[in-house]
């Protein structure tokens, strides 16, 4: 029963992503899309007797350094991998050792993405995609985030391979949760994601949900900052 984490990687930094790209196939079935982006050392595997997940996932955390304008900061520098997991039990191990989003301070985000997909607009899996955004008043983020990621890990969205990951963004006056999918133009998929979101988050019918394509996000970012240095995030 020991050493459940033998196969878990030590992803303490995104700095050395480049030399880890191993095309080695995992035992889990992966689509070509998911294989394209290989920022992993070794795939996580479920421990004996654990409950496997449909996909492996990676937790990320990012925080904007206070006092510096966003346009001068590299998103990739500010984002940090916390760890990857392949089973329900492994997920809880990470989750219970991280603070809740509601307790985060400053301009920071938790990201939970399928292993191999970076939480960035430019990632191959994301570049044609978009996200559903829900703005939450303060105090709701932790619970909404929990319900969102539990639905994602438990494959409740039923949109095949479309889901890329989820983000909770802690901001000054509000918090934002979002879920990213691969194909922004696939309306059947985005509608299904929206309906599932409503159900799992138990949102009142008048909640405003906004779908944003990543190309629009990039455009808005460039317009606002006047620099061509866009990256993921809300």
């Amino acid at each position: 029963m020991n050493n459940k984490f033998d196969a878990l990687k030590d992803d303490d930094s995104g700095d050395h992503d480049q030399d880890q790209g191993s095309p080695k196939d995992s035992e889990k079935e992966k689509t070509e899309d998911e294989e394209q982006n290989s920022s992993r050392k070794k795939m996580s595997v479920p421990g004996a007797g654990e409950h496997p997940l449909q996909y492996n996932y990676t937790f990320w955390y990012s925080r904007r350094t206070p006092g510096r304008p966003a346009s001068t900061q590299s998103y990739e520098q500010n984002i940090k991998q916390i760890g990857s997991f392949a089973s329900v039990e492994q997920f809880w191990r990470f989750y219970s050792h991280m603070i809740r989003p509601g307790d985060l301070t400053g301009h920071s985000d938790f990201h939970l993405f399928k292993e191999g997909i970076k939480p960035m607009w430019e990632d191959d899996a994301n570049k044609m995609g978009g996200k559903w955004i829900i703005r939450l008043r303060k105090g709701l983020a932790s619970r909404c985030w929990e319900n969102l990621i539990l639905a994602m890990l438990g494959e409740q969205f039923m949109v095949g391979e479309e889901i890329c990951g989820a983000v909770v963004s802690v901001r000054f006056q509000e918090d934002i949760i979002s879920i990213w999918n691969k194909t922004a133009s696939d309306q059947a998929t985005t509608a299904r994601i929206r309906d599932t979101l409503r159900r799992v988050l138990n949102l009142p019918p008048n909640t405003i949900m906004e779908y944003k394509t990543h190309t629009d996000s990039i455009k808005a970012w460039v317009d606002f900052h006047g620099l061509v240095n866009p990256s993921g995030g809300c």
Binding site: L8, K9, D11, D12, S13, Y61, W92, R93, S96, H97
Partner: peptide
């Protein structure tokens, strides 16, 4: 109990807790 263990590889970070909450 399996879900309460500390992950073997966990970066030192302000958002990372030393014990399971």
């Amino acid at each position: 109990p399996e879900a309460r263990k500390k992950p073997q590889f966990l970066p030192e970070h302000p958002i990372v807790l030393m014990e399971a909450r």
